[in-house]
Nucleic acid binder design. Structure first.
Lengths: 144, 144
DNA sequence: ATCAGGGATGTTTTCAAAGTCATGTGAGTA
DNA sequence: TACTCACATGACTTTGAAAACATCCCTGAT
């Protein structure tokens, strides 16, 4: 469904959100350990998220990553997916056709549209804030 | 969403269905040309479909692939996906966790369940017969 | 100004999916 | 029986995402 990068990105963003809510700035090592991801690879993903203004990075001693509390509710899952995997999951044809449209639909075009719209709706309506709250409350988990 | 193999498998099955409806048995070359897929790779996919009883193969001169008319309505998209990609798309966790369940859900578990159920419903309710009919009627296309 | 902590960036390496090639096997035909 | 057509099978190669490695650069503290 999503690329590995995107999966890590979602996990990392949620973890950073949880920590930011408690006023903590977190470093790469922390994040990689907490979401069980390869450190070097995670670094790249965090840089990408940082470029896309989804998270903030601070260099130097006591540096790390954080998310502004004021922005947390604004950040939706869809933004992370878009930043990591592009819009292929929203626009791409179910059978991989480059040109698949209402005018010239592939055999599963209409059927997939329904599912994709449901997916899009879900991603656009799910905020990182909500996900981080569930995690803080112990309703969900970031391991296993 | 699906592997390349699965995309080809769906396209191939639909094409074979269309031809079978007109009483034609089709060969590998025909299929590969029609769905614009690499021939050798397509051969493997057809063999897999054949093993899973989704299509029938006939060896020798005037051999080829076909689908029994009587079975065509019974074959659903879900069977092809299952044969090619396994059940990961139905069961797999949105964040890639090996153990993700109601008991120990990942942060997006519930949200994904809705989307996945919609996908499953769609795949289980879409028959190859219906898709082949749309193609025959010129409502859908297998190229581009 | 220097030093160390920690993020940023470019280059390899690894591995599974995608795709190719060579050869085997069964079926129809003469 | 011999030949040929077309599917079957397994080993091999290629490609690109995932992951690892090495190095650079910015920042705060002393």
């Amino acid at each position: 469904m999503f690329s590995k990068s995107c999966e890590y990105a979602i996990k990392a963003t949620i973890y950073i959100a949880v920590q930011s809510n408690e006023g903590n700035r977190v470093g790469l090592k922390d994040i990689a350990r907490e979401i069980a991801s390869p450190e070097a690879f995670t670094a790249k993903i965090l840089q990408q998220l940082s470029k896309c203004r989804i998270i903030n990075s601070v260099k130097g001693p006591n540096g790390g990553f954080q998310i502004d509390k004021s922005e947390m509710a604004r950040i939706k899952l869809s933004q992370i997916v878009l930043a990591m995997d592009g819009d292929s999951i929203f626009k791409g044809c179910g059978l991989g056709f480059k040109e698949c449209s209402e005018k010239k639909p592939c055999p599963v075009h209409d059927k997939f549209k329904l599912v994709r719209n449901e997916l899009r709706r879900m991603l656009e309506n799910t905020s990182i804030y909500d996900l981080s709250m569930d995690l803080t409350k112990g309703l969900t988990f970031l391991q296993r």
